[in-house]
Amino acid sequence: MFTLDRSAILGHPRLRFLTDLVPIHEHLDNIEKFIRICYEEQGWHVAQSGRIVALRATDEDRLSSAFKASLYLGKYNDMANTQRFLRSMVAAGHSYEPIRGETVLFLAIGVGKSVYDHLVTYTVGRPTRIAGGQRANVPWGFELPVEAKNPDEYEEELERIRHVIRLAKQDRAEQLQAARAKLPVGYIMPPFLLEFSEEALIKTVFRQRLFEKGAQGATVDVVTDMLNACIAIDEEKWKFLIDYHGPHLQQWEKAMRTLRKDGLTIRDIAERLGVSLDEALDRNLYEMLMETVGKLPPSMWEKQR
């Protein structure tokens, strides 16, 4: 039976929840109850990682993509072959049509508005966006930036959120739709839903927000949770896809460009590593290239840390 890991949400070190104004514990109890009724009891494999809950992955047991891949390749006598898409299509660099229509529905709980803004920019391969907090639902608190050096400096932001809630819900002096203009950028949105096709996830969302350096720290945290939830549902599929689209691709490209531009030899690589040529000849060439010509510069966020 699915149980919501509240500690991963309420115990998050950068989250400040307004439990004095918002019945967050009651909301979480209800969300957990109806996840069981609406998803788990209907046969879906629900998986939580941190602040993300994957409610529904449509490629159940990988059979839908197996059927579609078999039809695509004209293999009618073995259409439940769950390895065919990965081994015969991904590995060969062929079409991703078999998972283009397969989606994963994510529920985000305790996630700040800035992260939502980063994710909602993706429209290709995103059939669902449900964000009640963009209407009249109250914010749940404040999310400290990953880069914050003085957390106490942000207490006033929490008070601004309290003021907005009181203004709209207690004093009824303003409608929340108007009062929310006073909210700080980092307010915690009420739970929201985003659904992406699996192709969009591996080729775009995970690549740009996770595999490539430069994404904002809080967004990296949440997208990491999204990927880990996918892995919890189908480890073989997602680790296979990561092998063909993961963070090492940037290193490969940098290494190949440098080797082509500078015409380096094994001796040059050995010198960069500070080892003798004989040592280099006995070492793993791939690892040496990744340590030298494939090494990426630090991102803007890493430099700031």
Rank of each mutant, 00 (worst) to 15 (best):
R209W: 02
R257F: 00
G110A: 13
S114A: 08
A57S: 09
Y286R: 13
K169W: 10
E271P: 03
L119H: 11
E271F: 10
A280N: 05
Y187G: 00
S70D: 02
I165A: 06
F17D: 07
P247F: 02
G125C: 03
D20A: 12
Q177Y: 14
I24D: 00
L273I: 09
V53Y: 01
A280Q: 05
V115C: 11
D234M: 04
A280I: 04
D268P: 10
H163G: 09
H94V: 00
P298Y: 13
A179V: 04
D268W: 07
E60Q: 15
T123V: 11
S70Y: 02
F2A: 03
G246A: 00
S114I: 05
V111C: 10
Q250L: 09
Q208V: 12
G93L: 02
Y39R: 06
P139A: 07
L28M: 12
R267A: 07
Y72V: 00
H25I: 00
V90E: 01
R62I: 02
M288A: 07
L273K: 15
M288E: 08
L259C: 01
Q177S: 14
I161D: 00
L227P: 04
L273D: 00
P139C: 12
V205F: 06
L296Q: 08
M300G: 05
L194Y: 03
I231V: 14
L241T: 05
C38H: 15
K261N: 05
A173T: 12
E97G: 02
V104T: 15
R6I: 04
G263K: 09
Q250H: 01
R272L: 10
E291M: 10
E236F: 03
I31R: 14
P98R: 08
R180W: 12
R207Y: 10
K254H: 09
V111I: 11
H248L: 14
I130Y: 14
S65Y: 13
M288H: 13
D171N: 10
M226E: 05
E199P: 07
F34W: 15
S299I: 15
N228H: 09
T292Y: 02
A131M: 08
G217H: 00
K295G: 04
S70R: 10
Q48M: 01
Q134A: 07
E253G: 05
N150K: 15
S70V: 08
K169P: 02
I233F: 05
S114W: 09
N81E: 04
T3R: 11
T82C: 03
R14F: 07
R56K: 15
E153Y: 06
A215M: 06
L119G: 01
R180I: 15
Q251D: 04
V53L: 14
V138S: 08
E271Q: 10
W44F: 12
G50T: 00
G112W: 12
I202G: 01
H248N: 07
F196C: 07
F34N: 06
I233S: 05
V115T: 07
W238G: 04
R283E: 05
G246H: 01
I266K: 14
V293Y: 11
R257L: 09
A218F: 09
T204M: 04
V53H: 10
T58V: 11
R272K: 14
E198A: 10
